[in-house]
Computed example of a mutant assay.
Amino acid sequence: MERFGSAFAAWAAGGRAAAAAADAARELARSVGLRKIVLVEGDSDRAALEALALRLGRDLGSQGVSVVAMGGATSIGRFLGLLGPRGLDAEPAGLCDAAEEVFFRLALERAGLGPHPDRDALERRGFQVCVADLEDELIRALGPDGVEQVLTAQGDLRSFRTFQKQPAQRERPVGRQLRRFLGTTSGRKIHYGRALVEELDLGRVPQPLLRLLNGL
């Protein structure tokens, strides 16, 4: 399934390698029994979703589900265009930030999947919306103290305390400071997407993630 996701992303990217990537994606889709593709904005979303699935006893790959990071919400149209009878005959689902919701609605309509005039319609289609983003959802679910405990376990609390002293951060609520801190270093969002989910009380799973997994 990992190889399929890479081939699918290369196909969507276009260019010289697209034709070979398309052939590889189609062949891999058949071999893994692909039935659903979950489109997420970035690798941190993918890491969090896959980690949560494992905690809930779900092996998405064995269930024919591939989670694909698109490299940004504005790519949604390209990926949706590769699904359906003339592409990969797999049903789409997805996760997006509130600010990117409009891109997903428009792309679904342009792909011939019908208009989605409001968030409820989008979610019924299988596309869930995080407010404001996945990191914000996880921070609220764990609470600032819970996130700081994770930072302590990962050896990053001292760096966070230094970050809090920056002039631009001093007046911000702790939740916003944490959200910004997670995006300040390359790879940190991916690492903590997984680490925060691993410490999450399963009775407090953010609703967008829970609805998405329940629909797969």
Score class of each variant (00 low, 15 high):
L82A: 11
T162C: 05
A12P: 07
G77L: 15
L39G: 04
V32A: 00
R16K: 12
V197G: 00
A141T: 10
A24G: 03
Q63V: 05
R158F: 14
F103N: 02
R170A: 15
E41V: 10
V38W: 00
A132E: 08
L138Q: 03
E137V: 13
E148Y: 06
G155Y: 15
A48V: 06
G126Q: 11
A24C: 08
G112I: 11
E123C: 13
F181Q: 03
L54A: 10
R35P: 02
L213H: 03
E41T: 08
L54S: 09
I37G: 00
V131G: 05
L209A: 06
Q164G: 12
G87N: 08
V40N: 06
F160M: 10
R78T: 09
K165S: 11
A25H: 07
V40Q: 07
G33W: 00
L138D: 04
G112S: 09
L83N: 01
H116V: 12
R179S: 13
A168M: 07
G193V: 12
A9W: 10
E91H: 09
F103K: 02
D43N: 12
T184P: 07
G71H: 02
A132I: 06
A90P: 06
T162S: 09
E198H: 13
E101G: 02
V68R: 02
A69N: 10
A53T: 06
E27P: 03
I190T: 10
V67F: 00
Q154K: 15
R179P: 01
P208Q: 14
R86Q: 05
R194V: 12
G42S: 10
E50M: 04
G14E: 03
L151W: 12
S44E: 11
R125F: 15
R78Q: 05
A107M: 11
A17D: 07
G87F: 07
W11F: 02
L82V: 04
L142F: 08
R86P: 00
A69K: 03
S66T: 11
Q128E: 14
A12V: 02
A21V: 01
D145M: 02
L151D: 08
L157Y: 14
Q207D: 15
G72R: 09
F127I: 12
E100I: 06
G64C: 09
D136L: 09
D133V: 08
R188D: 05
D136I: 08
E148W: 06
C96Q: 05
A132V: 09
E100G: 05
V38M: 03
L202M: 15
R204A: 15
E123S: 10
Y192T: 05
A53M: 13
R26V: 01
L54W: 08
G183T: 14
A73M: 10
D89K: 01
A22V: 07
Q164I: 12
L216G: 04
G114W: 09
R16I: 07
R105D: 07
G64A: 12
R204Y: 04
W11V: 01
G84Y: 13
G94L: 13
E148P: 01
A168R: 14
V129E: 07
L82E: 08
E123N: 14
